[in-house]
Design a binder for these strands. Sequence first.
DNA 1: CAATAATAGCTAAGTGCTTAGGTAAATGGC
DNA 2: GCCATTTACCTAAGCACTTAGCTATTATTG
Lengths: 163, 163
Amino acid sequence: MTDHVDRILAQWRRERPDLDVSPMAVIGRLSRAAAAVHGRLDRTFAAHDLDRGSFDVLATLLRNGPPHRLTPAQLAADAMITSAAVAQRLNRLESRGLVTRAPNPDDGRGSLVSLTAAGKAAVEATLPAHLATEQELLADLSPEERETLAALLARVFHSADPN
Amino acid sequence: MTDHVDRILAQWRRERPDLDVSPMAVIGRLSRAAAAVHGRLDRTFAAHDLDRGSFDVLATLLRNGPPHRLTPAQLAADAMITSAAVAQRLNRLESRGLVTRAPNPDDGRGSLVSLTAAGKAAVEATLPAHLATEQELLADLSPEERETLAALLARVFHSADPN
DNA sequence: CAATAATAGCTAAGTGCTTAGGTAAATGGC
DNA sequence: GCCATTTACCTAAGCACTTAGCTATTATTG
């Protein structure tokens, strides 16, 4: 019942009993859980010749519905990354023929990114395995516990990123 | 009461009602919460002329107690990173005079990393602000909720990284 | 309506990780 | 006691992000 974070806390309490290190119990486990989960998800993506960033872009285009077309700025906001990172993800995806870029007829500065048939096929082939991996990661939690965890994480997110 | 992840789930349910996307509610919020929390923590580190990786190494040495000395392998295991990443963190810290490397008398292959006085001062100066930031991130959660969150995250971690 | 400011998207350079692969020392089997 | 294997640590190269800074277009404002 005692994990790595428990041992870290015990060390702090021994060396610095004057400090309240209790928040580390939560934040430390948040970091480690996210890192471990990402490692596991990445294995599934790699098994389908994708990486997390590429899947993220393709899935965003797919779930937005036909005609599976978004601006780079929309993709950046959705993925919580910079527009420069989106440009580089799109370079990779475009060179693999999974998306195409076309000028935006409504805005001469912008472009529109579309899912190709191959891109749609790639994301649709990966999606069930990805969801199965996520199910597997949550298999030990009851529906109520999942609900609780999601709600608590949403509140932490809000504290870290108000607005 | 509806956040970005809720909107993502609604899109999936409209486009792909055949799929059970419920695990995304948890995993998506875990990713986003961790990213937002890291962003907030990094601001505090930057305000004290450190980055997360450097602070992590210095704090690990400090909380292990006198003589504040560990092997690179111990630091790698603690931080869940490769030994190559530790070597690079140590290069940076050593060049700033915050740690020193010395040959390990008990093992000719290895070295021992020690916190310098300047390194100890740097981490001790940063620690209270770091803990205050963590407290701030959890301010909206009751002690019971923090306990619940930590326990649920520990179980997710265990599913993602058994052993 | 011209000048200024803001916006969209890109490339280039910097950062910190990973994987790959090298060297040197310790360990284990025979 | 030797040789093969393992271990500890490192550098180098690759990767995906960030920040900085560019160009082109659109929006604003006097």
